[in-house]
């Protein structure tokens, strides 16, 4: 029995890692598509959304089977619980990547460098992708210190997000005709902020699995890494 549950848990971990890798790729492609106004790449992201959904269902089923057939306890139970929640978080990150791709298609033209810079889109994307890379590597290496680094990065996203409404209002005042486009970009910032929140949740789930510590809903000060 023990070897069997090990096999099932490894399979579940492989599937979650595959979904994490796929979602990270979706974010990276989203950044490239926005940078280069690459509509083809945006369509590719939208097509890949089906793979995200399909993997999510597979992982749901893996978790259900593990719980029903193996009655996991202790670290195994924490792993299955964490995998189940991470799965849901990743699927939602995938949804945001997909929505951003749709904006790119709807947006219809390249964003000028000045707008890109003033809305801090590059920083937002770089940070959210770095967060996803951190949780991916933290999961592979079972490194909770790396997972904790995500909390600080999330604060960067939150800060940019808070400032975006002022920046957007200023840009609209300067060029009213571009209002709809600025609102699209404003939405992208909002979605990347949500991606940050979801990635932070994933980091918390990894810490729960590895250390049996519940960090959810705990306030952290600016220098706190989540301990």
């Amino acid at each position: 029995m023990s070897q069997h549950i090990d096999t099932e848990i490894k399979l579940l971990k492989d599937n979650v890692l595959e979904l994490m890798f796929l979602v990270k790729n979706q974010l990276e492609k989203g950044q490239r598509a926005l940078d280069n106004f690459d509509e083809e790449l945006a369509h590719e992201i939208m097509a890949n959304e089906k793979r995200v959904d399909s993997l999510e269902l597979t992982i749901d089923r893996d978790c259900e089977e593990l719980l029903a057939l193996h009655n996991p306890v202790a670290v195994d139970l924490r792993f299955v619980m964490a995998a189940f929640k991470i799965n849901s978080d990743l699927e939602r990150v995938g949804d945001h990547a997909n929505s951003i791709a749709k904006y790119i298609v709807d947006f219809g033209r390249q964003i000028d460098d000045k707008t890109f810079e003033s809305m801090r889109l590059k920083e937002m994307y770089d940070t959210s992708i770095k967060m996803m890379s951190n949780v991916f590597n933290a999961f592979i290496t079972e490194d909770t210190e790396l997972a904790r680094k995500v909390f600080k990065l999330d604060k960067t996203l939150n800060k940019i997000n808070r400032e975006t409404s002022k920046v957007t209002a200023k840009l609209i005042k300067e060029d009213v005709e571009q209002t709809q486009n600025y609102l699209y970009l404003f939405s992208i910032i909002r979605k990347l902020e949500r991606v940050g929140d979801l990635t932070k949740n994933i980091a918390e789930e990894l810490i729960f699995y590895m250390e049996a510590k519940v960090l959810k809903h705990k306030k952290r000060n600016s220098n706190n890494n989540g301990n």
Partner: peptide, 18 residues
């Protein structure tokens, strides 16, 4: 004991690893 045992030996036993 069944969610976060203190000892490795307990964890290995209850998870069926020995």
């Amino acid at each position: 004991i069944f969610t976060n045992p203190e000892k490795d030996r307990t964890q290995n036993y209850i998870t069926g690893r020995f």
